[in-house]
Design a protein around this nucleic acid. Sequence first.
RNA 1: CGGGGUGUAGCGCAGUUUGGUAGCGCAUCUGGUUUGGGACCAGAGGGUCGCGGGUUCAAAUCCUGCCACCCCGACCA
Length: 481
Amino acid sequence: MSKENKDFVKEITKMEDDFAQWYTDVIRKTDLIDYSPVKGFLVLKPYGYALWENIQKFLDGRFKDTGHENVYFPLLIPESLLNKEKEHVEGFAPEVAWVTHGGNEELAERLCIRPTSETIICEMYSKWLKSYRELPYLYNQWASVVRWEKETRPFLRHREFLWQEGHTLHETYEEAQNETLQMLGIYRELSEEFLAIPVITGKKSEKEKFAGAESTYTIEALMHDGKALQSGTSHNLSQHFTKAFDITYLDRNGKLQHPYHTSWGVSTRLIGAVIMAHGDNRGLILPPRLAPIQVVIVPIMQKKAGVLEKANELKNILEAKGIRVKLDDSKNYSPGWKFNEYEMKGVPVRVEIGPRDIQNNVVMVARRDTLEKETYSLDNIDEIVSGLLDTIQVDMFNKAKEEREKKTFTVNSLEELKEKMETSPGFAKMMWCGDKECEDKIKEEMSATIRCIPFEQEDLGDTCPICGKKAKHMIYVAKAY
RNA sequence: CGGGGUGUAGCGCAGUUUGGUAGCGCAUCUGGUUUGGGACCAGAGGGUCGCGGGUUCAAAUCCUGCCACCCCGACCA
């Protein structure tokens, strides 16, 4: 190994030293994005967009499976519409961007760039819905929204992000509730089975719920640095918006009713979650199901007769098995350069093939997640590689889950919580009386928040460790992005 | 809003104290040799030195006004 090679690892900031710096380093070096001239707006480059496309494909399939259809509503929302639901406008007004001019004319009513689309969608729903026979409305849209955040970080918090937002209407509260939980379940599936990120599912507290919601449900992931990331939310909006927007229909008994309403969304923030949950000092590690390139083939001494032919043959064999393969036969770079490049980009499996291998009817196969390298016969290489991809997917999830367990602990007092949050941040499990005063106290004392009231409740005691009153729930507390 | 810092090639920086032809590393391009963990040699291209004003024979360098970004603090949530 040359001196330069040894120094390579140092080019990416060591994760243990400075997680935030590591995160931006990795994003910069892996060609996912570029920064636009307007602060807080990102350019998604092909490799970054491909990640989003794969997430879209997975979700779109699951949405269709559950009877949903895609629609599109406009970018601009009149101010009067935004103002119709009181809690909603109070929650979003501080971070809304406004359009005040069209051409040279000042607009009579300014238009907001959607921070989310409940209002415009409800406005349209109120015109469409007439009868219970049309229900449920099961619509989803793929769009971008703008929220004028003060502090921005790529993928995790910026001023424009791509997302999907589902907006459904139902006859009964129960049906809306079932929809809310069903969609949260799909988000959990996306996170755990597709992105290999374990999540806690549960309900948000009153304080943390979506502006205008009856109740908000969330999937919460834990990052390497012990901070939680809200990765997807599903809201039961009950009749809050349908009353405010006067959406009505005639029910089975000929009576006028307001329908029940849900909305749910995940965004490109998930890409940030993948980077933080799986990466290491060499860069990204992508779970095989998400990876735009699942296998990269690096030919050695590609000028020698037969090498590229064999490499192409190998590519065809793997592609026939449904694997996403890239053969990098560029002449500009050495094999060593390519090894490092694709490791940095997180490609799950690398296959090396050179004259020596061809002579022995073998190839060298390297795993990105463990960095293990092994020789396999070419005879059943498609079976080997596709099996390996499945193994990596599962191993990555298990490893991430172990990491999370290591950073999850139970606390029995505010002092203990504070001490833990300062010395070894992570998920703190504790009991809670349900009062806002105790919730505020947590935030005041250590800038941590109640992440959720998990569905999987554990009995950690009878009293709230903050006020001493009777405990109602077990909660997860953490610092958050 | 207050304090501190930084603006020089695509990226990272030196040069500013003491004014005198605009530099280095990486990246890019050409040609050749290479190829099992970021190859080597030779050559080439690329700059209104953040913007404006001033001093001077001469300004990246000195003076001055402004702008942008980063860090710390306050404010806000």
